[in-house]
Design a protein around this nucleic acid. Structure first.
Lengths: 113, 113
DNA sequence: TTTACATATGCCCATATAGGAATGTATTGT
DNA sequence: ACAATACATTCCTATATGGGCATATGTAAA
């Protein structure tokens, strides 16, 4: 048996560095394919193929506008990954440091609200 | 060019479901290979190969004790993944729900400290 | 309609699996 | 030294890329 398809789930889809770059770029705002090509300096067919994979696993959403296809990251699709990784948080080292960080974030939150 | 090696980084290594199972299992406590085989019902060679990949990317640590090799998850290796996924947190939906959750976690933390 | 522009697909190829079976290696027991 | 135990590695095979290039498809402009 070969490796699972990149379209099998989010874990396989984001294993490709290029696709993570695309997701990062499209998280800020939706963009047409051409802009992704220019911004990330990748070949257009390559971008289209990566977007296909990302779309198949629900990590991006598309909208057509004339000749352009506007893609944007569907952050919700990344949550399972974040949550799985998060289950190991309690085993991380530097826990004291993290507690400190959380405390700071907390006080900052209090300041805001 | 083919897909990047599973040993290229943590992202590629955890793309395999079986390896995630192993990491989950070894997070609790170190275990000899045989126990992993029994617990996860996988073939021994398969487990050894997955462990090799995980070791190569630093996701597990090994210790020899006689004929046994005790493996345990190196949670720190999962942090990059958690942090990358975390950068999308602000784009997730149900933000209101999350704010509520954070507020609860905060009050619980206050209670503890 | 013909042309131009924006994307998506198809093809080919080198590469990397992941599983199964067999075998090699290290360590302990007799 | 020899057998047994615990793992690791090798070999084989079907499969899934990901990049480069050519081409098909869809939509708007002339």
């Amino acid at each position: 048996m070969a490796r699972a398809a990149t379209t099998s789930d989010a874990f396989n889809a984001v294993a490709e560095p290029r696709r993570r770059e695309i997701l990062n770029y499209l998280a800020l705002q939706e963009r047409p394919v051409g802009e992704i090509v220019d911004a990330l300096e990748m070949e257009q067919p390559s971008v289209s193929k990566h977007l296909r994979v990302l779309k198949d696993v629900g990590l991006v959403q598309v909208r057509r506008e004339g000749r352009n296809m506007f893609y944007k990251t569907n952050a919700d699709g990344i949550r399972p990954l974040h949550e799985w990784a998060g289950t190991f948080e309690k085993y991380w080292q530097h826990q004291l440091l993290r507690v400190k960080e959380r405390a700071e974030a907390k006080s900052e939150q209090s300041r805001k609200s």
